[in-house]
Design a protein around this nucleic acid. Structure first.
Length: 501
RNA sequence: CGGGGUGUAGCACAGCCUGGCUAGUGCGCUUGGUUUGGGACCAAGAGGUCGCAGGUUCAAAUCCUGUCACCCCGACCA
């Protein structure tokens, strides 16, 4: 049996494997604050790449960045009934504005605030109230703004990247003069997310609409992209909401239209978070650790000089340094190739595994033997393939090689999803699909089930019992009517059912 | 908020039931040597108010009381 860098393997214990990959790749760790993570340089660098690319896509679709306060007056949250209900249970609340020594000398909060502030769990209310001041005429619309920020949701149970009390994200908030325009914006940004997921993260996603039960608190419609992780569970990777006039009415975003009538604006909001890093890990990584799609990898290739003596070092290092410069002059994915040299004084095997676990797409070992042949010994992270490559050929083909890895990762993920997606029309099949063989230690089972359905108490009870959720109603290829697999009631569209994160 | 568990070196743990000398083991770290193209070996070192507070005792990591923190299982969730 081949030794794997990560213990346990995915098949043995997927959740534990996930934690170990993060640890081995040095992406993040738990902090001294309950539920909050420290994102370490390698992990943050991936987030920076995500930010950079998405930011470009937002700008290209006409959006600008701005920044709104971290604190929201408690009364703001209260203005939209569903919104309050959705978020009130998980808010961090600021009630005081200074500390003072207590009777026993320990610091205690002093000077209560007149109105408590909540730390934003999302910014619809504070941004909406700002827009209300900005908008008077139809000429002030649309407002197309995005903010990169942190938000806090006091969750009961947390997991690195997937669900933390504080997380980083972007939230787009737009206001429009007509419903049609706002709906178009909602769908456009859903498209941007799907494009990013598939072409940059190499993660195939299903675009769909959320059912009423899964809708964002206060939204008219919520759309999402859903990906399948390697344990066949679903992960929501991005959401786009059509908010109708719910928030504009609550926050009084009013404008005078061309006919001189007062109208409420139509708003949208959309976001993705550091959860994408979790999605990336669970989509591609293997039992030797992280596997990164080249387009988002902090480094595309690591050069590993090999030598035994100072004399060999003097020969190898200049060779490696000049190769690094040549590689970095090559174009890839709208930028340059990102190369690094690891010349640390540690053993070759250990150093190699270090980069395997961190998911660097390509590793090149370069020693005196390679230099004699004017080449490198190249290893591919996704397939494990290794071969000698001539130096100039490597430089000439580096971008193409990275593209191949990018495509391979996407195809591999797509194949997994297709192999584990089923059309299901009967309750028996549904139960068989979602019931593990071993209830005590559930094996990886199930996947996506495409089913006709009818929302209601019966379905809710069944889903709750089996820990299955309705992920979304796919937008594409979903036009054939049928009957609910549970109740037999008529159903216009199928939904994706799956166990989920 | 219910049920269970754990706090001992940077990390993972043993020791506690049955109190006893300068509190151990592995990994990691430092130094020296032998090694080196897929996770080396030998040797010598550094590193701990045993979560915190109080109590019992000649003597507490160990027993008692209180307290805090964290983890796991549920309900909640991007």
């Amino acid at each position: 049996m081949a030794k794997t860098a990560i213990t346990p393997t995915r098949a043995d214990d997927y959740p534990e494997w996930y934690q170990q990959v993060i640890k081995a790749a040095d992406l993040a760790e738990n902090s001294d604050v309950r539920g909050c993570m420290v994102i370490k340089p390698w992990g943050y660098s991936i987030w920076e790449n995500i930010q950079h690319v998405l930011d470009g896509m937002f700008k290209a679709t006409g959006h600008e960045n701005a920044y709104f306060p971290l604190f929201i007056p408690m009364s703001f949250l209260q203005k939209e009934a569903d919104h309050v209900e959705g978020f009130a249970k998980e808010c961090a609340v600021v009630t005081h504005h200074r500390l003072a020594p207590g009777p026993d000398g320990k610091l205690v909060p002093a000077s209560p605030l007149e109105e408590p502030l909540i730390v934003r769990p999302t910014s619809e209310t504070i941004i909406g109230s700002t827009y209300a001041r900005w908008v008077e005429s139809y000429r002030d619309l649309p407002i197309l703004i995005n903010q990169w920020a942190n938000v806090v949701r006091w969750e009961m149970r947390t997991r690195l990247f997937l669900r933390t009390a504080e997380f980083l994200w972007q939230e787009g908030h737009t206001a429009h003069a007509t419903a049609e325009e706002a709906v178009e914006e909602t769908m456009k940004m859903l498209g941007v997310y799907a494009d990013f997921a598939e072409n940059w993260m190499a993660m195939p996603v299903i675009k769909g609409e959320k059912t009423a039960g899964e809708r964002f608190p206060g939204a008219v419609n919520t759309y999402a992209i859903e990906g399948m992780m390697q344990d066949r569970k679903a992960l929501q990777a991005g959401t786009s909401h059509f908010l109708g006039q719910n928030f504009s009415k609550a926050q009084q975003i009013k404008f005078q239209d061309q006919a001189g009538q007062q109208q409420f604006a139509w708003t949208t909001s959309w976001g993705v978070s550091t959860r994408l890093v979790g999605a990336l890990i669970m989509t591609h990584s293997d039992d030797d650790g992280l596997v990164l799609p080249p387009r988002l990898a902090p480094k595309h290739i690591v050069l590993l000089p090999i030598y035994r003596s100072p004399e060999e070092r003097a020969q190898v290092l200049p060779y490696v340094e000049s190769l690094k410069k040549e590689l970095e002059a090559q174009d890839f994915a709208g930028g340059k190739v990102r190369a690094m040299i690891d010349d640390r004084d540690i053993r070759g095997g250990e150093k190699n595994w270090y980069h395997v676990k961190r998911g660097v797409p390509l590793r090149a070992e370069i020693g005196p033997k390679d230099i004699a042949k004017n080449g490198v010994f190249l290893a591919r992270r996704d397939t494990g393939e290794k071969a000698g490559v001539e130096r100039s050929a490597l430089v000439a083909t580096i971008a193409q090689r990275l593209d191949e890895i990018q495509n391979n990762l996407f195809q591999r993920a797509l194949q997994l999803r297709e192999e584990n997606t089923r059309t299901i029309d009967t309750l028996d099949d549904f139960l068989a699909y979602f019931t593990p063989q071993d209830a005590d230690k559930p094996e990886i089972h199930g996947g996506f089930a495409l089913c006709h359905f009818s929302e209601g108490a019966e379905l809710d009870a069944l889903l709750k019992e089996h820990k299955v959720t309705i992920r979304c109603i796919p937008l594409a290829g979903n036009d054939e009517a049928g009957r609910c697999f549970l109740t037999g009631r008529e159903s216009k569209k199928r939904a994706v059912f799956a166990k989920a994160y």
